Simulated assay, not measured.
Amino acid sequence: MNKLPKVLPLALSVELRLQQPGLDIQAQFRVLPGRVCAIVGRSGAGKSALLKATAGLHPSLGGRVALGNQAIYDSTAGVNLPPQQRRLAWLDGHAHLFPHLSVQGNLEYGLARAPKPVNGPNFDAVTQWLDLRSLFKARPARLTPSQRFKVALGRALLSAPRAILLDDPLSGVAEHDQPPLLDLLAQVPTRSKLPVVLISPRMNEVIRMADDVIVLHEGRMTSGGPVPQILSDVSLSTFLEGVNAGSVIEGEVKRHDIQWLLSEIDVAGQRVTAPAVLHAVGRKVRLKIRARDISLHRDLLEGSSASNQLRGRITQIMLAGENGSYGAVGVELDHVRETGDFSIQPGVQIWALLTRRAIQEMDLAPGQPCVASFKAMSLAVSSWR
């Protein structure tokens, strides 16, 4: 028997203009297959409206949405496919399961929506991955929020979509139940090879899942790029995390200290100590450190409780106005070669938030070598898909 033809994943390109009451929204972005683009910003910035317009659930004033070279919305060419024909899977915190159908019925509904003849996801593989087989006969009203989420995710994947749109998908699940579901979500881009767009107010989800991020402020894109670059830009803290602003850096687990329940992570050739993580040696991880938790020194410290001391060089100093009480100091980390020599590793940068007095008394200036210190307990470590 001949196999059904497979359709290669395509990039999702979005360039839209739309309106909400009191807000004019304009944005453009492109997501490659197997990658995740997160849209972040304050509440009311237009994030959900932009995602709904991409799906055809909100009217647009103009622009274009395309999968590869195929437009599913193009105001100039008069193309405007209805949502059910765009083949963009939508998942939010409400699940939207059919109450009159069983779990199996909901899943089979998704499978029936997959176009033929095209090889879509395998029903048995998806239901086994999500551990749904024991729930087949249950109705949605009897499910827990976590179970409803998994059924909705399975139904979305079984419909063989061309891209996946996630609008705060874990908002309907209690916080203590979110971590295992986030682990499942983080596997989706790799398993499906589809472009994924994520909206979430929780930065741990963005750090865990996203490859790229765009910042939306009052309907306009203020910045965009790789996660470590954008989420480490303290100049965007007003739009993002405020007092929790800091740096996101990528590393690799190198060693576990069982005696002290600590893990060592390589960052630019230097070792960072963190509370024990469950990730295997060799696993890529992301580390989040608040700028206010970092101290700067001229030389390495002795007899300090700050177990992490990273060598680097000051790149810039941003003061909070002429009369502000603090400033942000950017430090580019030295890259340590296996020979023990130091060199600059462009792009690996952390930020320290210091008082203006400390900056002045230390006479800090761009180009100066320094040591950035912080406690192991100040780190948040996340696996990175």
Rank of each mutant, 00 (worst) to 15 (best):
P228V: 13
E175L: 15
P346Y: 01
N244K: 06
P145I: 07
K375E: 12
S171Y: 00
V234L: 15
T273K: 02
G225P: 14
R86A: 03
P169W: 08
L182A: 15
P33D: 07
E252D: 13
L8R: 05
P33K: 07
D124E: 07
K6N: 06
A306R: 00
N69I: 02
G340F: 08
V213S: 08
A174P: 01
R220I: 02
V196S: 06
R30W: 10
L111P: 01
L166A: 11
I164M: 03
F342D: 01
L51R: 11
V243A: 15
L198I: 02
N308P: 04
L88W: 00
V371D: 00
N106C: 05
N204S: 15
L278A: 15
T273A: 04
G312H: 00
L32Q: 14
L296N: 00
I249L: 10
I25L: 15
R142K: 13
I214G: 12
Q147A: 11
I207R: 13
E15D: 14
P82A: 05
I249S: 08
R142P: 08
P21S: 05
S325P: 10
L143P: 13
S305I: 07
V272C: 03
S382I: 03
V336T: 06
R292S: 15
S237A: 14
R337F: 13
L91E: 03
R35W: 03
A210F: 05
V151W: 02
L354E: 14
I350S: 00
A280I: 02
L185C: 13
L194M: 10
N323D: 11
S232Y: 02
P189M: 11
L181K: 13
V126H: 05
N2L: 15
V331G: 00
A186G: 13
K52R: 09
L296Y: 02
A27C: 13
G246E: 02
K6P: 07
G63V: 02
I350G: 02
L130Q: 10
L379I: 08
G41H: 11
G41T: 04
G246P: 06
R30H: 14
I344K: 09
K47T: 01
P161F: 01
P366A: 08
L8G: 03
L23Q: 12
I265H: 09
T339S: 08
G110C: 01
A280H: 15
S247G: 15
Q85E: 09
A112D: 00
L278M: 12
A125I: 06
S343D: 05
N69T: 08
L153V: 06
Q28M: 11
Q368W: 14
G303E: 14
V206W: 13
D233I: 12
L50R: 01
L278T: 06
M203T: 03
P369A: 04
L301I: 11
Q85S: 05
P145C: 10
L157R: 03
T273Y: 08
L236D: 07
L353K: 09
L194K: 10
P226D: 06
T54S: 08
A45M: 10
G22F: 04
P201Q: 08
R202V: 05
E175S: 14
S75C: 09
S134H: 05
R298S: 09
F98P: 04
A66F: 04
A125T: 07
I249H: 04
V329Q: 05
S192T: 06
Y73P: 02
I164C: 01
R113C: 04
D293K: 03
R133T: 06
R283N: 12
V277H: 12
K47H: 09
G340T: 01
E252F: 12
T339D: 12
D74K: 01
A45K: 10
G246Y: 01
